[in-house]
């Protein structure tokens, strides 16, 4: 046990040292660092695998973080050791540095793209999809007429929709929100429609026995039963919304926003800023997905997937 811990500490020190040496401007330093890290890598992987096997809360929380750190370190060593050009793949240290230097810009972009376009579009698109699903479910006419048209709308390519929305709603964030609405509306419509139809014959017969009308049946049986479907759409849409807003900014925008930043800085070869923006997007996307998953767990605690 002590031996393993000792070798893990040794490997970690070796890894940090080689990361430091790799950036030194001595000739042959990167190659030497790469060699050292090749020694450290198997030891680190072994130590991490052993740690991840533990069934403690600390291990469960720390394992993915340590694994991520290992990947970042490996990325750093490979890029520096093999002299990979900066435009192809900057090292994580450079991305982190860009993140800190451009924090103000990144925050402004985040506010423009995420807090305005994504959240407004997501709320409107999901809300409208849910409301239309209720209407479609209530009216056979709409089910026959609207649902197939919705199918058509769902296959419209976002790169085609975005310029049209810019024409309609202007350069600022409302046109991006509109793209997000178009993207998120249909998944919510389809999922909610399926969820409302997901009740069993016996459960419906039970409501019929009590002479329950449309509204009690909807509120007490069909909406609760549809919740797992609705949450599937909410999670799917949280990622779609971010993609939609970022891509939409490629087609005309004021001089801010995450999509604008990515397209202009990529054109200027500032790949570290592009990667820093991608990091912000990935963090925002994961956090919102995680938050919705937590709400789902609380709201559909009764579902077989979450029962304890």
């Amino acid at each position: 046990m002590r031996q393993i811990r000792g070798s893990a500490v040794f490997a970690a020190v070796l890894a940090l040292a080689s990361a430091g040496i790799a950036r030194a401007s001595l000739p042959g330093a990167p190659a030497f660092a790469l060699l050292a890290s090749l020694v450290a890598l198997p030891l680190l992987v072994l130590a991490l695998a052993r740690f991840a096997r533990r069934d403690t809360l600390a291990a469960r929380l720390a394992s993915p973080a340590l694994f991520g750190a290992l990947l970042l370190w490996l990325w750093e060593m490979l890029v520096l050791g093999l002299h990979i050009p900066f435009v192809l793949l900057p090292p994580p240290s450079a991305i982190a540095a860009a993140f800190v230097t451009h924090l103000g810009t990144l925050a402004t972009d985040f506010r423009q793209t995420y807090l305005h376009a994504v959240i407004a579009g997501y709320a409107l698109g999901c809300g409208a999809g849910f409301a239309v699903a209720l209407a479609v479910d209530r009216s056979p006419f709409l089910r026959r007429g609207l649902l197939p048209l919705g199918n058509l709308a769902s296959v419209m390519p976002i790169v085609g929709v975005a310029p049209i929305m810019v024409m309609w709603f202007g350069f600022d964030w409302p046109s991006k929100a509109a793209v997000v609405v178009v993207m998120t509306f249909f998944p919510m419509l389809v999922n909610t429609t399926a969820g409302l139809a997901a009740t069993g014959a016996m459960e419906r017969d039970l409501m019929h026995c009590y002479a329950a009308g449309y509204w009690p049946t909807l509120l007490k049986l069909r909406l609760p039963a549809s919740m797992p479907f609705v949450f599937t759409a909410l999670k799917l849409n949280s990622t779609l919304a971010l993609i939609g807003a970022v891509v939409a900014e490629f087609f005309g925008t004021p001089i801010l926003g995450m999509g604008f930043r990515i397209s202009t800085e990529a054109a200027r070869m500032n790949m570290d800023i592009v990667w820093a923006t991608i990091t912000v997007a990935a963090l925002a996307g994961s956090l919102s997905f995680g938050a919705i998953a937590l709400i789902e767990r609380a709201a559909t605690f009764w579902h077989p997937a979450f029962r304890r």
């Binding site: 069993g200 016996m202 017969d205 039970l206 026995c209 007490k220 049986l221 609760p224 559909t300 579902h303």
Partner: peptide, 16 residues
């Protein structure tokens, strides 16, 4: 008029 109670082959309880 809610004249009867009905017990199905399965309990048909709502899990939520």
């Amino acid at each position: 008029a809610r004249a009867y109670g009905y017990v199905f082959q399965a309990p048909a309880l709502y899990p939520w």
